[in-house]
Design a protein around this nucleic acid. Structure first.
Lengths: 229, 229
DNA sequence: GAAAATATGACAAATACATGACATCGGTGT
DNA sequence: ACACCGATGTCATGTATTTGTCATATTTTC
């Protein structure tokens, strides 16, 4: 699961810190800004996937910043959650009109924060609809998350599934173990290259005699998925 | 999923606009009317599947319109959600008596609106459009709101019913816990993902040995309803 | 045949899921 | 107002699967 980046904009360092801790525990990457001025200055750095904005801040208020962000092309699509103190609830409509995607009233529990954040992100990132791939009666269907051989289901583990999916969408091409680790496991995990061999073996076993030949060893290099030879 | 049409009746253009945007993002088709007079004028155009009605409007008030709609044959079956300002909560009973199906207090989040709208549509979709689904002797009939196994009724809770209904109308497809929460619980509730596991278990228990196998675990992903394997 | 590379079987630790128990909440009847 | 009830969400614990690594076999290359 790729961890998302959240930008917190709040003038109170203690609040920021509290939120940051909660989010980091939930495995989010956190950026902080203490006011509206410094907030949008992220041309170079990593772009956040979501912005947590305090309503009440000196200088440009949260709601103004929200409007500004929604107007700008680059940030218009970025989900915004507004934080407001209790009793300011009437601002809710105003805030949502300004383009905020959700609205949390202080005080809130870290749990609630994380839950709503997750929900907003979920909506903002619609899962891509992927097509099924089929080769010589071997079919991998992302929708049902299933692999079938001429209609009958195959027993296959999660990692082997991802491996096969990668291969079927990148046929006729040799990949080194290192490349496979990057593509299938994800770039920032450390595992032995030999581990790839083991999963290749498990994948071949799952595919059975019928389809084994599709997973080919490229000696001295790595592996390849190919219908030829 | 066929997109539904929602008619918004409110005298405030800004409110209408806000709601319209929220609904369109949620993939609904939107019609607008600014008062009770123009509202019923839909003899020709597309019929809405649901009406969002502001309580307070000049001229004919929302509640009066609601009553009128409920009296008329053509619109009697149409679900109505009333929008009311905060503090008018006492009107709730009155509103529901007038035939409204739900009741939302301003201010509300788009998420909340969409969720309740979805809930109302789910529950109030005119009988006849929702067909019973049957799979291997397991039958779910929305009309009678009943689940039967080869004719004999099964004991099943509300949440499990909705879960099963979703699954039976979306077979052969893997869903993450997150997606199930969105689809079955509604986007505006914040519950633990693990909670899905518990309801899956309850559903399986209700289904009994005979049909348990239909609810399949997809390791590392979520769950799936499938007649195969 | 020796060296290098890959295949394979076995394991222990890490993960993910299943299950039972429990607290809470809204609704009902007393 | 009160106790009761079913429905729900959460947690702690039990169980099963998955995963990365090794040690050891087997194959390929020269």
């Amino acid at each position: 699961m790729s961890s998302k980046t959240v930008l917190i904009v709040d003038d109170e360092p203690s609040i920021r810190e509290m939120i940051a801790v909660a989010l980091e525990m939930a495995d989010y990457h956190v950026l902080e800004a203490d006011n509206a001025q410094s907030a949008p200055r992220h041309g170079a750095g990593p772009q956040p996937d979501l912005i947590l904005l305090d309503w009440m801040m000196p200088g440009t208020s949260g709601i103004e910043l929200a409007r500004r962000l929604k107007r700008e092309e680059a940030t218009a699509e970025m989900p915004i959650i507004l934080l407001t103190a209790k009793g300011e609830e009437d601002n809710k409509v105003q805030g949502l009109e300004a383009g905020a995607d959700d609205y949390i009233t202080k005080p809130f529990s870290p749990r609630e924060l994380v839950a709503r954040l997750k929900a907003v992100l979920r909506r903002a990132t619609p899962p891509g609809i992927e097509e099924a791939v089929e080769v010589e009666g071997l079919k991998l269907d992302p929708a049902s998350h299933r692999v079938t051989s001429h209609g009958s289901a195959l027993e296959i583990g999660p990692t082997e599934y991802r491996l096969l999916q990668f291969f079927m969408t990148h046929q006729e091409r040799a990949y080194t173990r290192s490349q496979l680790l990057d593509q299938v496991w994800g770039g920032n995990v450390y595992v032995e290259e030999r581990t790839v061999d083991v999963h290749i073996r498990r994948l071949r076993k799952s595919l059975g005699e019928t389809h084994q030949h599709l997973i080919q060893t490229v000696r001295g290099t790595g592996y390849r998925f190919s219908i030829r030879e």
